[in-house]
Structures are given as structure tokens and as C-alpha cells.
């Protein structure tokens, strides 16, 4: 039975005279890994920002895990992002002076989890991503692939309902990218986290359960609509 975790309906968003989104409907099932593709300037980032509650659409609704994000003010949306959404980006997301375990524990500490408990959970997530022996290292002493797996552990440590991964392997070579992507998807499929995988790369998108393509502020042709 369908169990949508994201239901976006009739999304419109403009910046001045530029229409970035022109009526997007999108449903994402719980536990699904969805690739969001599209050329630069297509409205892809605006769509993602609306779905993650970073931006409020001019028209339309976004319901995530039963919460209508479009009915919340900016502070309430920020709280939802902290507790219900994880983010992984292409570059520069780890704090360089903190060890891997401290980087991973940070979102828990920000959400008022006790330090001892936060550290235990951070170690568990590093272990899940094959980084148990890297816990005491700072990001500058790790490979790009290891640092990216730390960033993934940090994004998942709060057990988010949805993980937004924006070009998560875009700065890595092909072999490291495959290793990181496989590690991330093994873990999220194991725990049932929904993933929005934003990518230009078709080989990365091929790891998803399906893809949508954003073009000119709309979902392109056959890809639009509800999950199959």
C-alpha cells in the first residue's frame, strides 16, 4: 500500500520575473531512493529547497512525514530540518578542527542530546559506514571518500525521515564515488530512510529506485507524477 513521505502539490516559485517552478506535483514513497536530475537552471535546486523546507513556495503545499511544511513559519521549518531531515553536500561540510566522531555527534548535541549518548550514537554510525578506526581523526587527515562517509554519518545520526544528498559523490573519483554511494545506500536501505539524491550524473542516478527530471520548472514528460 502506498505510504508517501513527501507529497508536493502544485508548487510554484518565482524570483522576480523568473519562474523557477511552474506547477510541480511529486510524491515520494517512504524508504524510496529517488534521483532528482536536471540541467543547471532547470529549477532543480528550488524544488529541493521547497521540499526540504528551506524555501516556502509561492503556491502549493509540501507535506513531509505528516507535517505540512508550507503551513509553518521559518523557525518551525528550521526545527523540522534539524530533527527530521539530513543533508549531505558535495564539498566542505565537516568542521576541520573537530574529530570525525565530534563532527558526527554535533547535530545530536544541537538537538540537546546528552554528550555521552551523542558520542555512543556517533560511534555507532561511523561503524555502520566502515569508519570505526577513523573516529579520532580530523577531516584533513582523511581521504575524500572517508570524509564524505563521515558527512553521511553526520547526516544520518539524528535518524532523519528524509536524507537530501546533493551531488554527494561529485568531488570524488569513480571508484571512491562508487564505494561511498554503495556504503550510503546500503545503510539507508537497511534503516529505511528515504533519500532524495540530487545529481547530474546518470551513473549515480542509476543507484536510485527511480528518477525524476526537472526541466524549465516542471517535471519532465514520462518521469512526472507518483511513484510506480
Amino acid at each position: 500500500m502506498p505510504d508517501p513521505i513527501i507529497a508536493a502539490t502544485g508548487l510554484h516559485k518565482s524570483f522576480g520575473s523568473t519562474e523557477a517552478l511552474r506547477g510541480v506535483d511529486l510524491t515520494v514513497e517512504r524508504g524510496e531512493v529517488l534521483a532528482v536530475m536536471g540541467p543547471s537552471g532547470s529549477g532543480k535546486s528550488t524544488l529541493i529547497h521547497c521540499l526540504a523546507g528551506v524555501l516556502a513556495p509561492d503556491e502549493g503545499t509540501v507535506v513531509m512525514d505528516g507535517i505540512d511544511l508550507t503551513a509553518l513559519n521559518a523557525d518551525a521549518r528550521a526545527r523540522v530540518r534539524l530533527t527530521r531531515i539530513g543533508f549531505v553536500f558535495q564539498f566542505g561540510q565537516l568542521l576541520p578542527d573537530l574529530t570525525a566522531v565530534d563532527n558526527v555527534a554535533l547535530p545530536l548535541l544541537m538537538a540537546s542530546t546528552a554528550r555521552r549518548r551523542a558520542n555512543v550514537q556517533a560511534h555507532e554510525w561511523l561503524d555502520r559506514l566502515g569508519l570505526a578506526d577513523q573516529a579520532a581523526k580530523v577531516p584533513g587527515t582523511m581521504s575524500g571518500g572517508q570524509a564524505q562517509r563521515v558527512a553521511i554519518a553526520r547526516a544520518l545520526v539524528t535518524s532523519p525521515a528524509v536524507l537530501f544528498a546533493d551531488e554527494p559523490t561529485g568531488s570524488l573519483d569513480s571508484v571512491s564515488a562508487e564505494n561511498v554511494l554503495t556504503a550510503m545506500l546500503d545503510v539507508v536501505r537497511d534503516v529505511g530512510t528515504t533519500v532524495m539524491l540530487i545529481t547530474h550524473d546518470a551513473r549515480t542516478a542509476a543507484y536510485a529506485d527511480r528518477e525524476v527530471i526537472v526541466r524549465d520548472g516542471r517535471l519532465s514528460g514520462a518521469h512526472a507524477g507518483v511513484a510506480l
Binding site: 546518470a202 542509476a206 543507484y207 536510485a208 527530471i213 519532465s220 514528460g221 514520462a222
Partner: peptide, 24 residues
């Protein structure tokens, strides 16, 4: 022509997904 390219893109992405699954 745009629809033609879309159809081809969908087919190729589907093929890539199948190959990626086979590769695992």
C-alpha cells in the same frame, strides 16, 4: 523531437539501473 529524446533517455536510464543492480 523532445518527446523522442525523453523516451530514449528513460529507456537508457532504466537500462543503467538494471545494469547497476546486476553489478552489485
Amino acid at each position: 523531437a523532445d518527446a523522442l529524446l525523453d523516451t530514449q533517455r528513460t529507456a537508457l536510464l532504466g537500462r543503467m539501473r538494471q545494469l547497476t543492480t546486476d553489478k552489485a
